[in-house]
């Protein structure tokens, strides 16, 4: 008996096929201009990789900012609930989840059964998100994927004072002109993101163990800076981008009996 979770973010969309407790397969695609199209593509790819036919799916739950566009889903649930649920499934002891995605970041306090107890999200600003890294990568003519390694090579981090992505871009241009190395600038950018997210996390209250999920969790520079800023080691799942889709799939599985309960037995 298969179910699917689909997480449509601003930058990427993920789908995950679940059979009981087993992850049968998953996929990641670019969201592009259409959330619905990305959801279809992600689902087809995940089904293909799982060796499961579409008509074998019993239930689909959509999450992420594009969830409302996934009209073929049986239910839409927010990414707050799905990240909490997915993180709890992977690491039942997790008490805090931090997700930094393409255009937003969030912190969720996780209770028993994977139920969110509190949450905070970034407001109307791309600072502290993956978009911030993308902009700076372009200015520094670096590949996004290699930014983490550049940051870790730095002997010190440049001070980036701007919290606004646009102003930070100007600041980076000035730093480049002043001869500051790319390593130091990237390390400074990672630290800037980490400080902003850590401040947001403080609103919720950071209780370890802390999981770091979302696409930016692949960036080792941000992981390092965030661990420093929080004062806690971070658990980074093997596939940090699929935590939301996993949570959605778990909710889909539990909803097959017709209940609308989103969380586990204690949740």
């Amino acid at each position: 008996m298969y179910v699917a979770g689909i997480d449509i973010g601003s930058t990427s969309g993920e789908a995950l096929i679940l059979e009981g407790e087993r992850i049968a397969g998953w996929s990641i695609v670019d969201t592009g201009y259409s959330s619905r199209r990305a959801a279809e593509q992600a689902l087809e790819l995940a089904l293909q990789r799982s060796g499961v036919a579409r008509d074998q799916l019993r239930r689909i739950v959509a999450t992420g900012y594009g969830r409302v566009s996934v009209d073929f889903a049986d239910q839409q649930v927010t990414e707050i609930s799905c990240y909490a649920r997915g993180a709890h499934f992977l690491y039942p002891q997790v008490q805090t989840v931090i997700d930094i995605g393409g255009q937003d970041s969030k912190v969720v306090a996780v209770g028993s059964g994977g139920k969110p107890l509190d949450f905070a999200m970034n407001d109307k600003c791309a600072a502290g998100t993956g978009r911030f890294l993308e902009v700076i990568a372009r200015v520094l003519q670096l590949e996004l994927a290699e930014m983490g390694d550049w940051a870790l090579r730095a002997k010190r981090a440049a001070e980036i004072s701007s919290t606004c992505t646009v102003f930070a871009e100007s600041e980076v241009v000035t730093l480049v002109a002043d001869g500051v190395t790319r390593e130091e600038i990237v390390a400074g950018i990672c630290r800037s993101i980490a400080r902003r997210v850590a401040a947001m996390a403080a609103r919720v209250g950071v209780e370890p163990p802390v999981m770091f999920a979302g696409g930016v969790a692949r960036n080792r520079g941000v992981v390092h800076a965030l661990e420093e800023a929080l004062g806690h080691p971070l658990i980074v799942p093997e596939e940090p981008q699929i935590v939301g889709a996993l949570g959605a799939a778990l909710i889909a599985r539990d909803g097959m009996d017709g209940s609308d309960k989103l969380f586990g037995p204690q949740g």
Binding site: V77, T78, I80, S81, P116, D118, F119, M121
Partner: peptide, 8 residues
């Protein structure tokens, strides 16, 4: 935010 709060 509203939906997540209500889910909670």
């Amino acid at each position: 935010r509203l939906e997540a709060f209500m889910e909670m």
